[in-house]
Computed example of a mutant assay.
Amino acid sequence: MTLLAVERIKLFTTRSPWWCTLIALVLTIGFGALMAGTSDEAIAPLNVAATQFGYGFGLVVVMVMATLAITTEYRFSTIRATFLAVPNRPSTLVAKATVVAVLAAVVGEIAAFGSWGIAGAIKPNVDLAINTAYEWRAVAGVGLVYALSAVVAVAVGVLIRHSAGAIAVLLIWNQLVEPLVQLIPRVGDDIHKWMPFNIANKLVTGNPDPTTRDVLQGPPPSDAVLGPWPAIGVFAAFAAVLLGIAIVVANRRDA
């Protein structure tokens, strides 16, 4: 508990988590409001999925926040003092990943329900009730995806240690590698179905999707072959393995 308290204090006494949290909330809720304000009931009726249009933008910002939480310690060499005070490096890094993941989950839930709420306020006559399992996952599932993605970001930050490099790797993978891998002839689509962030998105966009929405309404549907809950389980395992690798590497090299 002491380690968790220390990591919480270190996280909230720097500016980057506050700014990233604000930006993530403004982006996701802002896009929710934009989707509600521009929706046309005759062409593309507003639905629960559409309110989460900004989900991916908020995810990027949350991963940047999680990366900075560890890489700034390497940049200013405060990680050395941390490891001197607590020689058990795995405990320290797990505590940091836990605190960052909890913050990411809270941001994700506020962003998701905030987007849904503001859309309902803008279009009070539209039925945006959360009734089905799919609709609950589309909104409440955002926090879980954000939390696990934050763990992935912390692990990458530990491995690379430089803010710009770690952020570049995460953004290039999430925004370029996974979408563009589908362009590989014959095997691209099969590979894409097992890409980690595509698998994670299955929880939020996975079947059954009763809205039969256009792909431009809300986050792009995942084509992962697993069901929503097995998919997020695989992504959680991926995050855990990557964090484990990062801990082993951190134990073997100088801070």
Rank of each mutant, 00 (worst) to 15 (best):
P210Y: 07
T67Y: 05
D127N: 14
L183F: 12
D209Q: 11
A150S: 10
V156M: 12
F235L: 06
G143I: 02
R80D: 01
L144S: 01
L11G: 00
V225F: 08
G58A: 07
N131T: 15
R213A: 15
I172V: 15
G157E: 06
M195E: 05
A168I: 08
V62H: 02
T82F: 07
L144Q: 01
I23R: 03
F53M: 14
I118A: 02
L68V: 00
P87Y: 06
V94Y: 08
A50Y: 10
G58H: 02
L226D: 03
Q182M: 13
K96L: 12
V100A: 06
N198Y: 10
R253P: 08
A85T: 13
V61W: 06
I184S: 09
G244W: 03
T205W: 04
V169L: 15
G227N: 12
A5I: 11
G233P: 12
A150C: 09
I199W: 00
A111E: 04
A153T: 09
T13D: 08
I247M: 12
L203K: 03
P219R: 06
W136H: 11
L27I: 14
V99Q: 04
P228V: 07
V86Y: 14
A255C: 09
P90F: 06
T71K: 04
Q182R: 14
I199F: 03
F235T: 02
G30N: 10
W19H: 05
I122Q: 00
Y134Q: 11
F197M: 12
A95P: 01
S16N: 05
G108L: 03
I118F: 01
A168E: 00
G54W: 02
Q175K: 08
W229D: 05
V234H: 00
R253M: 10
A69V: 08
L183C: 01
G206A: 04
W194V: 15
A119N: 02
A69S: 15
V225S: 14
G141D: 03
V126N: 02
L148Y: 07
R80Q: 13
L180Q: 08
V177D: 09
A121L: 15
P196F: 11
V158D: 01
Q175S: 11
P87C: 08
G117M: 11
P124Y: 05
A236Y: 06
N131V: 15
M35E: 12
T211M: 10
S115T: 06
G218D: 05
I23M: 08
L180W: 09
V126S: 03
R252L: 12
G32V: 04
A246Q: 04
T212C: 01
A69M: 13
V248N: 04
L4I: 13
V187A: 10
V62F: 01
A155H: 10
R252T: 05
V158H: 01
I110F: 10
R8M: 12
L243E: 02
R252K: 14
A95K: 01
S222D: 11
V234W: 09
R15D: 01
V60K: 08
N125Y: 13
T51N: 09
M63A: 10
G120R: 15
P90N: 07
V177R: 03
L171C: 07
L170K: 03
G227E: 13
V126T: 13
G157V: 09
A255H: 10
W194K: 05
H192L: 00
M35K: 05
W19R: 03
V60S: 09
R213K: 11
F113T: 14
